[in-house]
Design a protein around this nucleic acid. Sequence first.
DNA 1: CATAATGTCTCTAGCGACTAGAGGTTCAAG
DNA 2: CTTGAACCTCTAGTCGCTAGAGACATTATG
Lengths: 138, 138
Amino acid sequence: MFSIGELSRRTKVKVPTIRYYETVGLLTAPERTEGNQRRYDRAGLQRLNFIRHARDLGFSIEAISSLIELQDHPDRSCQAATDIAAAQLSDVRAKIRRLRALEKELLRITKGCDGEGVSEDCYVLTSLADHELCERQH
Amino acid sequence: MFSIGELSRRTKVKVPTIRYYETVGLLTAPERTEGNQRRYDRAGLQRLNFIRHARDLGFSIEAISSLIELQDHPDRSCQAATDIAAAQLSDVRAKIRRLRALEKELLRITKGCDGEGVSEDCYVLTSLADHELCERQH
DNA sequence: CATAATGTCTCTAGCGACTAGAGGTTCAAG
DNA sequence: CTTGAACCTCTAGTCGCTAGAGACATTATG
Protein backbone atom coordinates (compact mmCIF):
# COMPACT_ATOMS: atom_id res chain seq x y z
CA MET A 1 0.00 0.00 0.00
CA PHE A 2 1.51 3.27 -1.04
CA SER A 3 0.56 6.91 -1.40
CA ILE A 4 -0.16 8.82 -4.58
CA GLY A 5 3.26 10.43 -4.40
CA GLU A 6 4.95 7.05 -4.21
CA LEU A 7 2.85 5.82 -7.14
CA SER A 8 3.87 8.92 -9.04
CA ARG A 9 7.55 8.24 -8.40
CA ARG A 10 7.25 4.64 -9.49
CA THR A 11 5.34 5.33 -12.68
CA LYS A 12 6.71 8.76 -13.59
CA VAL A 13 3.15 10.01 -13.90
CA LYS A 14 2.58 13.30 -12.11
CA VAL A 15 0.32 13.38 -9.08
CA PRO A 16 -2.34 15.69 -10.54
CA THR A 17 -2.39 13.55 -13.66
CA ILE A 18 -3.11 10.46 -11.59
CA ARG A 19 -6.02 12.23 -9.94
CA TYR A 20 -7.16 13.39 -13.36
CA TYR A 21 -7.16 9.81 -14.65
CA GLU A 22 -9.36 8.89 -11.74
CA THR A 23 -11.88 11.64 -12.46
CA VAL A 24 -12.20 10.59 -16.09
CA GLY A 25 -12.62 6.96 -15.15
CA LEU A 26 -9.33 5.54 -16.39
CA LEU A 27 -8.31 4.57 -12.90
CA THR A 28 -10.79 3.19 -10.41
CA ALA A 29 -10.94 5.04 -7.12
CA PRO A 30 -8.54 3.38 -4.69
CA GLU A 31 -8.94 2.81 -0.97
CA ARG A 32 -8.45 5.72 1.37
CA THR A 33 -6.81 6.15 4.73
CA GLU A 34 -8.81 7.42 7.66
CA GLY A 35 -7.50 10.83 6.77
CA ASN A 36 -8.93 10.51 3.23
CA GLN A 37 -5.68 9.96 1.38
CA ARG A 38 -5.45 7.53 -1.51
CA ARG A 39 -3.62 4.24 -0.98
CA TYR A 40 -2.66 2.09 -3.97
CA ASP A 41 -1.64 -1.55 -4.33
CA ARG A 42 0.25 -3.55 -6.96
CA ALA A 43 -2.82 -3.76 -9.22
CA GLY A 44 -3.13 0.02 -9.27
CA LEU A 45 0.53 0.33 -10.14
CA GLN A 46 0.21 -2.09 -13.05
CA ARG A 47 -2.84 -0.36 -14.36
CA LEU A 48 -1.17 3.03 -14.30
CA ASN A 49 1.90 1.63 -16.04
CA PHE A 50 -0.34 0.29 -18.75
CA ILE A 51 -2.00 3.68 -19.14
CA ARG A 52 1.29 5.51 -19.23
CA HIS A 53 2.72 3.23 -21.84
CA ALA A 54 -0.37 3.60 -24.01
CA ARG A 55 -0.33 7.39 -23.62
CA ASP A 56 3.34 7.42 -24.56
CA LEU A 57 2.32 5.67 -27.75
CA GLY A 58 -0.24 8.39 -28.40
CA PHE A 59 -3.43 6.47 -27.65
CA SER A 60 -6.28 8.74 -26.61
CA ILE A 61 -7.90 8.42 -23.23
CA GLU A 62 -10.94 7.01 -24.96
CA ALA A 63 -8.92 4.35 -26.77
CA ILE A 64 -7.22 3.39 -23.53
CA SER A 65 -10.59 3.05 -21.84
CA SER A 66 -11.60 0.61 -24.53
CA LEU A 67 -8.38 -1.35 -24.15
CA ILE A 68 -8.85 -1.58 -20.40
CA GLU A 69 -12.38 -2.81 -20.86
CA LEU A 70 -11.08 -5.45 -23.24
CA GLN A 71 -8.61 -6.65 -20.64
CA ASP A 72 -11.50 -7.59 -18.43
CA HIS A 73 -13.29 -9.51 -21.18
CA PRO A 74 -10.71 -11.78 -22.79
CA ASP A 75 -13.16 -13.26 -25.26
CA ARG A 76 -12.72 -11.57 -28.64
CA SER A 77 -10.50 -9.01 -26.99
CA CYS A 78 -7.51 -9.71 -29.18
CA GLN A 79 -9.08 -8.71 -32.47
CA ALA A 80 -10.67 -5.63 -30.99
CA ALA A 81 -7.45 -4.60 -29.30
CA THR A 82 -5.49 -5.13 -32.48
CA ASP A 83 -8.02 -2.99 -34.34
CA ILE A 84 -7.53 -0.14 -31.91
CA ALA A 85 -3.77 -0.42 -32.18
CA ALA A 86 -3.97 -0.58 -35.97
CA ALA A 87 -6.13 2.55 -36.01
CA GLN A 88 -3.54 4.26 -33.87
CA LEU A 89 -0.81 3.14 -36.24
CA SER A 90 -2.57 4.51 -39.27
CA ASP A 91 -3.18 7.73 -37.39
CA VAL A 92 0.52 8.00 -36.64
CA ARG A 93 1.38 7.30 -40.24
CA ALA A 94 -0.99 9.97 -41.48
CA LYS A 95 0.64 12.45 -39.15
CA ILE A 96 4.07 11.48 -40.40
CA ARG A 97 3.01 11.99 -44.01
CA ARG A 98 1.62 15.39 -43.26
CA LEU A 99 4.66 16.45 -41.27
CA ARG A 100 6.96 15.34 -44.04
CA ALA A 101 5.12 17.58 -46.47
CA LEU A 102 5.48 20.42 -44.01
CA GLU A 103 9.15 19.67 -43.55
CA LYS A 104 9.70 19.87 -47.27
CA GLU A 105 7.88 23.15 -47.57
CA LEU A 106 9.58 24.70 -44.57
CA LEU A 107 12.94 23.64 -45.83
CA ARG A 108 12.20 25.29 -49.15
CA ILE A 109 11.05 28.45 -47.44
CA THR A 110 13.96 28.74 -45.06
CA LYS A 111 16.52 28.07 -47.75
CA GLY A 112 15.06 30.62 -50.13
CA CYS A 113 14.44 29.78 -53.75
CA ASP A 114 17.25 27.33 -54.59
CA GLY A 115 19.79 29.82 -53.23
CA GLU A 116 19.76 31.67 -56.54
CA GLY A 117 20.90 34.99 -55.14
CA VAL A 118 19.20 36.88 -52.35
CA SER A 119 15.81 38.26 -53.19
CA GLU A 120 14.78 41.79 -52.33
CA ASP A 121 12.11 40.88 -49.83
CA CYS A 122 12.23 38.28 -47.12
CA TYR A 123 11.54 34.97 -48.79
CA VAL A 124 9.93 33.49 -45.69
CA LEU A 125 7.36 36.23 -45.55
CA THR A 126 6.61 36.37 -49.25
CA SER A 127 6.27 32.58 -49.34
CA LEU A 128 3.76 32.64 -46.59
CA ALA A 129 1.90 35.53 -48.14
CA ASP A 130 1.59 33.86 -51.52
CA HIS A 131 0.37 30.34 -51.49
CA GLU A 132 0.97 30.06 -55.22
CA LEU A 133 4.66 29.77 -54.46
CA CYS A 134 4.12 26.41 -52.82
CA GLU A 135 4.59 23.09 -54.42
CA ARG A 136 1.29 21.30 -54.64
CA GLN A 137 1.24 19.76 -51.14
CA HIS A 138 -0.53 20.79 -47.92
CA MET B 1 -15.66 45.50 -49.27
CA PHE B 2 -17.07 42.15 -48.30
CA SER B 3 -18.67 40.42 -45.37
CA ILE B 4 -17.13 37.92 -43.02
CA GLY B 5 -18.95 35.10 -44.80
CA GLU B 6 -17.50 36.14 -48.13
CA LEU B 7 -14.03 36.37 -46.56
CA SER B 8 -14.56 32.91 -45.15
CA ARG B 9 -15.45 31.53 -48.57
CA ARG B 10 -12.43 33.12 -50.20
CA THR B 11 -9.92 31.97 -47.60
CA LYS B 12 -11.51 28.70 -46.48
CA VAL B 13 -11.21 29.89 -42.90
CA LYS B 14 -14.40 29.38 -40.92
CA VAL B 15 -16.34 32.41 -39.78
CA PRO B 16 -15.98 31.78 -36.02
CA THR B 17 -12.26 31.24 -36.53
CA ILE B 18 -11.94 34.63 -38.22
CA ARG B 19 -13.65 36.25 -35.27
CA TYR B 20 -11.39 34.29 -32.96
CA TYR B 21 -8.31 35.58 -34.77
CA GLU B 22 -9.59 39.08 -34.24
CA THR B 23 -10.07 38.59 -30.50
CA VAL B 24 -6.53 37.26 -30.07
CA GLY B 25 -5.08 40.11 -32.08
CA LEU B 26 -3.98 38.28 -35.21
CA LEU B 27 -6.39 40.26 -37.32
CA THR B 28 -7.00 43.93 -36.72
CA ALA B 29 -10.64 44.85 -36.21
CA PRO B 30 -12.10 45.80 -39.59
CA GLU B 31 -14.56 48.54 -40.41
CA ARG B 32 -18.19 47.98 -39.56
CA THR B 33 -21.45 48.75 -41.29
CA GLU B 34 -24.00 50.93 -39.56
CA GLY B 35 -25.60 47.71 -38.40
CA ASN B 36 -22.32 46.64 -36.75
CA GLN B 37 -21.30 43.99 -39.26
CA ARG B 38 -17.65 43.52 -40.26
CA ARG B 39 -16.55 44.65 -43.73
CA TYR B 40 -13.17 43.55 -45.10
CA ASP B 41 -10.99 44.83 -47.93
CA ARG B 42 -8.19 43.34 -50.02
CA ALA B 43 -5.64 43.94 -47.26
CA GLY B 44 -7.72 41.94 -44.81
CA LEU B 45 -8.00 39.13 -47.31
CA GLN B 46 -4.24 39.00 -47.87
CA ARG B 47 -3.57 39.03 -44.17
CA LEU B 48 -5.92 36.16 -43.52
CA ASN B 49 -4.43 34.16 -46.37
CA PHE B 50 -1.02 34.69 -44.83
CA ILE B 51 -2.32 33.48 -41.48
CA ARG B 52 -4.03 30.48 -42.96
CA HIS B 53 -0.97 29.43 -44.85
CA ALA B 54 1.20 29.76 -41.78
CA ARG B 55 -1.30 27.81 -39.67
CA ASP B 56 -1.38 25.09 -42.30
CA LEU B 57 2.36 24.84 -41.85
CA GLY B 58 1.88 24.43 -38.12
CA PHE B 59 3.09 27.82 -36.94
CA SER B 60 1.58 28.80 -33.60
CA ILE B 61 -0.57 31.88 -33.23
CA GLU B 62 2.27 33.46 -31.32
CA ALA B 63 4.80 32.75 -34.05
CA ILE B 64 2.43 34.17 -36.63
CA SER B 65 2.01 37.30 -34.55
CA SER B 66 5.76 37.73 -34.61
CA LEU B 67 5.90 37.20 -38.36
CA ILE B 68 3.18 39.77 -38.92
CA GLU B 69 5.02 42.27 -36.79
CA LEU B 70 8.13 41.64 -38.85
CA GLN B 71 6.22 42.38 -42.03
CA ASP B 72 5.65 45.89 -40.78
CA HIS B 73 9.30 46.46 -39.91
CA PRO B 74 11.30 45.33 -42.93
CA ASP B 75 14.65 46.18 -41.33
CA ARG B 76 16.24 43.00 -39.98
CA SER B 77 12.99 41.19 -40.61
CA CYS B 78 14.49 38.57 -42.85
CA GLN B 79 16.87 37.04 -40.36
CA ALA B 80 14.26 37.04 -37.61
CA ALA B 81 11.64 35.55 -39.89
CA THR B 82 14.02 32.86 -41.05
CA ASP B 83 14.81 32.05 -37.43
CA ILE B 84 11.15 31.53 -36.67
CA ALA B 85 10.71 29.34 -39.71
CA ALA B 86 13.83 27.36 -38.84
CA ALA B 87 12.53 26.81 -35.31
CA GLN B 88 9.29 25.56 -36.81
CA LEU B 89 11.22 23.25 -39.09
CA SER B 90 13.19 21.73 -36.24
CA ASP B 91 9.97 21.33 -34.31
CA VAL B 92 8.43 19.45 -37.22
CA ARG B 93 11.49 17.26 -37.52
CA ALA B 94 11.40 16.40 -33.83
CA LYS B 95 7.77 15.39 -34.17
CA ILE B 96 8.59 13.22 -37.16
CA ARG B 97 11.36 11.46 -35.25
CA ARG B 98 9.08 10.76 -32.34
CA LEU B 99 6.26 9.53 -34.56
CA ARG B 100 8.59 7.23 -36.40
CA ALA B 101 9.58 5.60 -33.13
CA LEU B 102 5.90 5.19 -32.30
CA GLU B 103 5.22 3.77 -35.71
CA LYS B 104 7.89 1.16 -35.24
CA GLU B 105 6.62 0.15 -31.84
CA LEU B 106 2.98 0.04 -32.93
CA LEU B 107 3.87 -2.03 -35.93
CA ARG B 108 5.67 -4.49 -33.71
CA ILE B 109 2.74 -4.63 -31.32
CA THR B 110 0.06 -5.08 -33.96
CA LYS B 111 2.03 -7.74 -35.80
CA GLY B 112 2.70 -9.75 -32.66
CA CYS B 113 6.17 -11.06 -31.88
CA ASP B 114 7.62 -11.76 -35.34
CA GLY B 115 4.52 -13.77 -36.24
CA GLU B 116 6.02 -16.77 -34.49
CA GLY B 117 2.75 -18.50 -33.74
CA VAL B 118 -0.18 -17.02 -31.90
CA SER B 119 0.43 -16.34 -28.24
CA GLU B 120 -2.06 -17.28 -25.58
CA ASP B 121 -2.91 -13.77 -24.51
CA CYS B 122 -3.53 -10.75 -26.65
CA TYR B 123 -0.14 -9.44 -27.67
CA VAL B 124 -1.36 -5.85 -27.92
CA LEU B 125 -2.51 -5.86 -24.33
CA THR B 126 0.48 -7.67 -22.89
CA SER B 127 2.83 -5.39 -24.78
CA LEU B 128 1.18 -2.35 -23.35
CA ALA B 129 1.12 -3.82 -19.88
CA ASP B 130 4.80 -4.68 -19.87
CA HIS B 131 7.09 -1.94 -20.94
CA GLU B 132 10.04 -4.31 -20.79
CA LEU B 133 8.83 -5.84 -24.04
CA CYS B 134 9.61 -2.64 -25.89
CA GLU B 135 12.71 -1.96 -27.82
CA ARG B 136 14.61 0.87 -26.19
CA GLN B 137 12.80 3.81 -27.83
CA HIS B 138 10.07 6.12 -26.56
C1' DC C 1 4.95 14.99 22.79
C1' DA C 2 5.10 19.28 20.12
C1' DT C 3 6.26 21.29 16.21
C1' DA C 4 7.71 21.80 11.54
C1' DA C 5 8.10 20.21 7.03
C1' DT C 6 6.26 17.80 3.59
C1' DG C 7 2.54 15.54 1.44
C1' DT C 8 -2.17 15.28 0.31
C1' DC C 9 -7.02 16.84 -0.21
C1' DT C 10 -10.70 19.40 -3.16
C1' DC C 11 -11.84 22.96 -6.07
C1' DT C 12 -11.38 26.21 -9.72
C1' DA C 13 -9.18 28.14 -13.61
C1' DG C 14 -5.94 28.12 -17.41
C1' DC C 15 -3.40 26.35 -21.73
C1' DG C 16 -3.94 26.35 -27.41
C1' DA C 17 -6.78 26.80 -31.10
C1' DC C 18 -10.63 26.49 -31.98
C1' DT C 19 -15.99 24.74 -32.24
C1' DA C 20 -20.89 24.76 -30.94
C1' DG C 21 -24.90 26.81 -29.42
C1' DA C 22 -28.27 30.33 -27.67
C1' DG C 23 -30.70 34.29 -28.43
C1' DG C 24 -30.98 38.44 -30.84
C1' DT C 25 -30.13 41.89 -34.99
C1' DT C 26 -29.24 43.22 -39.88
C1' DC C 27 -28.98 42.69 -44.57
C1' DA C 28 -30.40 41.57 -49.44
C1' DA C 29 -33.72 39.49 -52.52
C1' DG C 30 -38.24 39.20 -54.18
C1' DC D 1 -42.36 45.10 -46.85
C1' DT D 2 -41.55 40.66 -45.66
C1' DT D 3 -38.87 36.71 -45.34
C1' DG D 4 -34.86 34.09 -44.56
C1' DA D 5 -30.09 33.85 -44.62
C1' DA D 6 -26.28 35.84 -42.66
C1' DC D 7 -24.57 38.31 -39.03
C1' DC D 8 -23.84 39.89 -34.00
C1' DT D 9 -22.16 38.79 -28.93
C1' DC D 10 -21.64 35.80 -25.30
C1' DT D 11 -20.83 31.57 -22.92
C1' DA D 12 -19.32 26.97 -22.63
C1' DG D 13 -17.21 22.83 -24.43
C1' DT D 14 -13.24 20.14 -26.61
C1' DC D 15 -8.45 17.34 -25.13
C1' DG D 16 -5.16 16.15 -21.74
C1' DC D 17 -3.46 17.88 -18.69
C1' DT D 18 -1.12 21.80 -15.38
C1' DA D 19 -1.10 25.40 -11.81
C1' DG D 20 -2.69 27.51 -7.85
C1' DA D 21 -5.36 28.42 -3.48
C1' DG D 22 -6.50 27.14 0.96
C1' DA D 23 -7.17 23.43 4.17
C1' DC D 24 -6.11 18.89 6.31
C1' DA D 25 -2.90 14.56 7.10
C1' DT D 26 1.26 12.34 7.85
C1' DT D 27 6.01 11.87 9.02
C1' DA D 28 10.51 13.34 10.81
C1' DT D 29 13.02 15.77 14.12
C1' DG D 30 14.03 18.12 18.62
